[in-house]
Design a protein around this nucleic acid. Sequence first.
DNA 1: TGAATGCTTCGGTCATGATCAAACTATGAA
DNA 2: TTCATAGTTTGATCATGACCGAAGCATTCA
Lengths: 228, 228
Amino acid sequence: MKEGPDIARVAALIGDPARANILTALMDGRALTASELAEHAGVGLSTASGHLSKLSHGHLVQQRKSGRHKYFQLADGDVAAVLEALMGLASKDGPTRVRTGPKDAQLRTARVCYNHLAGQMGVQMFQSLVSKTVLDEQGADITLTPNGTAFMTEFGIDLDDLRTSRTPLCRSCLDWSERRTHLAGTLGRAMLREMEHKGWLRRDPASRAVVFTSRGKTAFDHCFPVGV
Amino acid sequence: MKEGPDIARVAALIGDPARANILTALMDGRALTASELAEHAGVGLSTASGHLSKLSHGHLVQQRKSGRHKYFQLADGDVAAVLEALMGLASKDGPTRVRTGPKDAQLRTARVCYNHLAGQMGVQMFQSLVSKTVLDEQGADITLTPNGTAFMTEFGIDLDDLRTSRTPLCRSCLDWSERRTHLAGTLGRAMLREMEHKGWLRRDPASRAVVFTSRGKTAFDHCFPVGV
DNA sequence: TGAATGCTTCGGTCATGATCAAACTATGAA
DNA sequence: TTCATAGTTTGATCATGACCGAAGCATTCA
């Protein structure tokens, strides 16, 4: 077998353990340096450099030079979505799951997906926004209603600022632990940032977990009540 | 690097060209024999047998013995969804796309995704059913409305028969060429089968393409008008 | 009971690519 | 300028695993 479908190229790229480690490390949306990623992957710097070059050519990651550092991040949300989907498959792969530890449960309740909130709380927020008619959901198309504009402004988000970006304001993202839609796009990102800014939550620096403060959880539930 | 995340195992499984060929061959939902798959993959029978054993252990395919034949098919819809997602990523991978041929356009309009209709027409059907309130969409949850029961019966589908299965009746599936939801689940499968039975469409035996007859296209547009 | 077909297992060959250390380049700091 | 830090390139080693043909099972058909 020499020439296979393109799908094989991409999958093989993700299929190397070191590269998979790099990609999962980037799943929280942060940009990391080559050395940090080498550390995460558990390989030497030269090896990591080679991997990053391949991931770059495969358009799975994006690079940005800043001084003598080079920062890497996932190319876009689609890559993150594919990784999430693969995790969904892998997690039910037979009894290999030594997982479901305490960390795992925490990821299930709230985690960062690329740059927005995912997990049970991400889904709760989204569904609450839909029933409050802040968002309108038509298939995979999410739009902000006129009603929603006021809500967001009050929440502390500068919509004009967001609209300058060429990436869509609202986007749906499928949650693989919950099998439900949650909010992505620049608005999803802005809301996560705002909640962090309000002090509702804290991002675990070592993982994708998001920890709500008790005050934050209360405010969250008040702002995004379930089953309205 | 020795032990990576589970995601690497799954991705590596898909990442081999021969195995990727096998999986894409199975994307139309049909069950194929080991020899047929060896042919598709372009490798010897013994090699294909080894690959199939690995795919089986990785829970990506399912096997069923029937006489002296052994049939293989994708393990479930989630696998198909991941493959579709990977195709989405691969298709925008730089200028490597010698694709976008006539076959590609045909796949974009209508194709089989695992066992249901996908592509532009799949999306059209789904959206039409939602605006006709045959289906109700809440996030990723799709349900058949009481209204919809009558519609389906008239369409020629025996719902009681479908409900005996333990897999959900309705399920949403994200279309990666259209970036929109379409209908999966046993109902999605039944509708495709019924349309084939009505003679509206014909499945290309060599690919995932679905070709509508001109009469079928007219009936389809009448039954599932766009933008109702 | 053979004979034929479909698939699996085994043994051996071979190519790929992951890895590291060391040399090299580039940027920033002293 | 010189030194230190961050990253890339190169060259060599080595393990993995894809591949095939031949032999081995199993199932059906005669």
